[in-house]
Design a protein around this nucleic acid. Sequence first.
RNA 1: GCGCCUGUAGCUCAACGGAAGAGCAACGGCCUUCUAAGCCGUGGGUUCCGGGUUCGAGUCCCGGCAGGCGUACCA
Length: 541
Amino acid sequence: MNLSHHLIARLRRTLAGLQYPDVPVTLELPPSPDMGDRSCTVALALAKPLKRAPRQIAQEILQALPPDDPWIDRVEIAGPGYLNFFWSREALRQVLRGLRESGPDYGSSDLGAGERRLFEFVSANPTGPLNIVSARAAAVGDSLVRVQRKIGFDAQSEFYVNDAGRQVDLLGESVRARLREALGRPLEIPEGGYHGIYVRDLAEQARQEFPGDPLTAPARDLGRWTAQRIVAGQRETLEAYGVAYHRWFFESEIHQSGAHWQTLERLKQEGHIYEKDGALYFRSSAFGDDDDRVVVTSDGRPTYFLPDIAYHLDKAGRGYAKAVDLWGPDHHGHVGRMQAAMRALGLPVEFLEVVIVQQVNLLRGGQPVKMSKRTGEMITMDELIEEVGSDAARQIFLSRRWSSPLDFDIEMAKDRSEKSPIFYVQYAHARISSIFRKAGDGEELQESDLEALHAPEEWDLLRSLSLFPDAVETAGLQLAPHRINTYLSDLATSFHRFYHECRVLSDDPALTRARLALCRAVQVVLKEGLRLMGMSAPDQM
RNA sequence: GCGCCUGUAGCUCAACGGAAGAGCAACGGCCUUCUAAGCCGUGGGUUCCGGGUUCGAGUCCCGGCAGGCGUACCA
């Protein structure tokens, strides 16, 4: 049940019948509903190849359209040559029937044709608790995966744990420094170590539970043990946020299997590696990067880059046609080298798509909250969820494009007054639930009841429902989950207006049944949309 | 210096290359009703500036300006 697809198919057939050159047929939303429900600009696009006036072409298309379409009430030509389509009441009733049949599957499609896609996000270092930046990435990444699956991609989520390398040693040494501090010695955190107060708690845990003597064990062993504790905590945080990964991938797996050395061999064989000053360089500049990059240092250690290449190669090896990585703005400089590596290894350019999720500026009542990674002074993701709640946080993170920097005001996020737009959509859902509580077990809808729908607010609501599949499709294809949020706000507006103007439970049984069916349809779409955003659909507020 | 992101109403932000929008703030209305966390109305714009491509540019390209981030044999 997708009115847009129906119309596009109609138009394509008509254009083919007219033997026009092949141009993409897409639909727009006219600026105002009284100008139409969907609009098509093919006549404008055809003006040049046909060397004719666009309005004249529009006229020709209009006349060639099958006149007997029960879903189209009328077509108008507007402006320079827009074709504006108006749905018939029958079409809008059909939306309601279709929704009753498909339920939450409404808006699902097989557009992705089962293509396997892997979404990697957050992937924070296992050296401290997750912060607010991770909260944004988690909200965006998780919603992306949900939407991708909705439109027929076989999408999965993954967290890459950097549990190897120097930072793990530093973590071990930082824990040890805290252990010594607890014994009354001065606190000496190593250069580049971790200053956060959370390290003290980890040291206490290590004192009690580390298998062996944490004061004398190798820093790497202590670090690895601690990292595992931190990862477990990160996993709990994300689960409290409603994010469950399909897989947690540990960098140490690569070090154990030696996959990174195999990757290096492969690059060497292809002639993409050279030595300079004792270090091994990957000739990434030959594949579009600004510069060549070190993959093995002069003292023989792999840089983080080499296992990272191996990891992404592993993604391809696992049968994913596309890997989408969500990175922070501080890593955007790495996009070029990673894509260069993918190309050097023979993967198509589109294989790796990097989404840079921009920074979050944390505010409290309009004032910036100072955060410092060095001193470990920061608001953790746990504190964020505790203070503002998972739903409110996700709603804010999904209300903007990921490419925009975002101001997150904690006070505003907690606000539950009428000024706050955060609960607008959920409130609509709760209101509908309330109606159904009052209605009790209603009678079954009769086909003839639909004739009772007449108010403009009812048609407007049905029009809004008809746009859900389009919103899902756009959000999925453009990797733009905030589109779902924009759509749901519009739907909620239509509903609140309807609620205000049209009493659902009345002494007219047919009208009551019809309006209850309409409410149910709205409720299903709100709930499904909220699910795609990883938010709950409360029955009471 | 170079690279990336951002610049749209007073503020926070939407807008598949297609006809500039919403929320908040301001002002004025609506609770004896299924939830007022809601609804209705009013005002508010050189889409940072200058070129270009296009039938059509907030959107794409080039050049500026402003803010943010990055620019390691760290991750």
